[in-house]
Design a binder for these strands. Structure first.
Lengths: 331, 331
DNA sequence: TTGAAAGCGCTAACAC
DNA sequence: GTGTTAGCGCTTTCAA
């Protein structure tokens, strides 16, 4: 089957290609009968406009690039879902790029993104390099960052204030006499952990104390579970343990159960990134409902705004809130 | 910043645009000194070739469309990872499309895919309509389907034979006297469940029996957990319960624990789609290691083959195998 | 080895 | 209302 172009349709309908173009773009200056005539020709030939040619002519691709970490948690999936749902509304297509742990191919991706002439970029990545973003801004590509708050003028950002979250929660704990709080490292999400840690430090400082409950997982341990299993034997019990991901929380739960530590009576457990698995664990794990879907959706909405409103969008920094969901692992 | 085109580079380097084109495409007919001259001009101007224009001129976009269900399990994520890793090798970009439960916008997606002139399509979707695929084949777009075996001549497919998996496993159970096998419905993945059911039926037939252990979850129950909680009270205990996803297996585990059913002694539990959560549950849930990552990787490899080898690719149907991973929920 | 020019398929002034 | 035509940025013969 030969590729059908706008010329073929024009010939078939016996009009000029400009008229066909007008029809497919819904221009209202076309007379009804010619519109119908063209429409029929399109139907008959099975013509589909070539988005690439349109992109070239219009200097816009109605495509945005989405850059996410390869590690696919449920969380990331939800962000993508939210983003795509909004993208669909505005007819944007998504080019998906993933960054692989360790390998600094971010530059390759950026290069790729520039070449592909997408209209905008959404980046969700724990480790984000300002320099790399600069590349994009040099090429005038609108950017929205998810997760990291950016103070830059040109990039938008949608995020959750984990520091505040941690600070507030710690304050609450301290108020209730629970001062022995532990935060477990998450190698995959250092930036998030840093925010949490900062928040905890702040809370302790506000209460005239110093936060010292950060638990690093030595490189030689392949999983938090394995490490904690050892750790718990030689270290005093905490009042509250905070983990970032559900799997770490489950590791804590398992270790506790195996070592005879009663949760929540001997020790409380909170997981920052709530997930359905938290409620399937026994005892059910308390967590913070982080608006993952919304992070994606709002980011995309912000980007479309930046893409359409020539005059700068007023609020490029959007903070989303969270909700604490108490379950059985906390009192 | 004005958009830098190949003309700007040509002027800067004082050569024709044809030469610049040759340089960026690594043609070896260019004399070294002019190559360097052009290279410098490119560097100086920060020129990046416009992939859209290239796509138009070359009639190929080096982009493939990936269609996956919106519901983001870990599994889907892994498939995407595998696919992207291979796509990177061959320099392909990914256009991500998701299908939403219920809403039959598959046609919209297909339409979109055709317009975007991607070089090929990979589809992973439980509910797959042959008609919709036909659209794509009409437009000569190479397709690879993940998960469903397709007998079609033009589409490739990469899949796991769940029927065989179920049949073999059931045979093994029956051989050991465990004939009371239950398979729990999964509304999100009817096609997979059908395959499993077929496999079980076959095994029972082979043993002169009939499979009657399919457990449907009535619409009014919001989760398998809630339903099973009721179900278990009025129904006899099974020998073996099979679920498709980890969350269903965990539901079974929780119900069993709460109702005083000892797993694996009173009843065994197997989850088809293994995941890390299975090994975090207690008792750890036995499962089949389905090669999710490979499904994606192999699918992409197959597609690139179909894209490059003009003469038909010999083997367009690729079956991947699985490994049973016994843990604590089976004896 | 390099350049000139004809497309690739479409849009958008500008004419008529 | 509709047609003509000049791009959009690049590749690729065909000449030189």
């Amino acid at each position: 089957m030969k590729r059908i172009t706008i010329y073929d349709v024009a010939k078939e309908a016996d009009v000029s290609l400009a008229t066909v173009s007008r029809v497919i773009n819904g221009s209202d200056v076309v007379r009804e009968d010619t519109r119908v005539k063209v429409q029929e020709a399109i139907e008959k030939l099975g013509y589909k406009p070539n988005a690439i040619a349109q992109g070239l002519a219009l200097q816009k691709t109605t495509t945005i690039a989405l850059i996410v970490p390869e590690a696919s948690y449920f969380y990331t999936g939800q962000i993508i879902n939210g983003l795509i749902d909004v993208a669909k509304i505005y007819k944007y297509n998504i080019m998906l790029h993933t960054t692989t742990e360790g390998i600094t191919e971010m530059n390759d991706i950026i290069e790729n993104v520039i070449k592909s002439r997408v209209d905008g970029v959404v980046i969700f990545n724990d480790k984000l390099n300002k320099e790399e973003l600069n590349q994009l801004t040099t090429y005038q590509i609108p950017i929205v960052v998810i997760g990291n708050r950016m103070s830059d003028e040109t990039v938008g950002s949608v995020y959750v204030d984990y520091a505040k979250l941690a600070c507030d929660y710690a304050n609450e704990c301290i108020r209730n006499g629970k001062t022995d709080i532990a935060l477990i490292e998450d190698r995959k999400n250092p930036a998030m952990i840093k925010q949490l840690r900062d928040g905890l430090s702040r809370a302790f400082k506000e209460n005239g104390m110093e936060f010292s409950g950060y638990i690093e997982i030595p490189k030689e341990y392949r999983s938090s579970y394995l490490f904690l299993k050892e750790y718990v034997k030689t270290n005093p019990r905490k009042d509250v343990v905070i983990t970032y991901r559900d799997s770490q929380a489950m590791a804590v739960l398992n270790v506790a159960k195996e070592e005879g530590v009663d949760i929540p009576n001997d020790m409380e457990l909170v997981c920052i990134l709530d997930s359905k698995y938290n409620s399937m664990a026994r005892p059910q794990i308390s967590g913070f409902k982080i608006p993952d879907y919304d992070l994606g959706a709002v980011a995309m909405r912000l980007l479309t705004k930046m893409l359409t409103d020539e005059n700068d969008v007023v609020d490029k920094e959007i903070e989303l809130s969270y909700i604490f969901t108490p379950r059985q692992s906390t009192k």
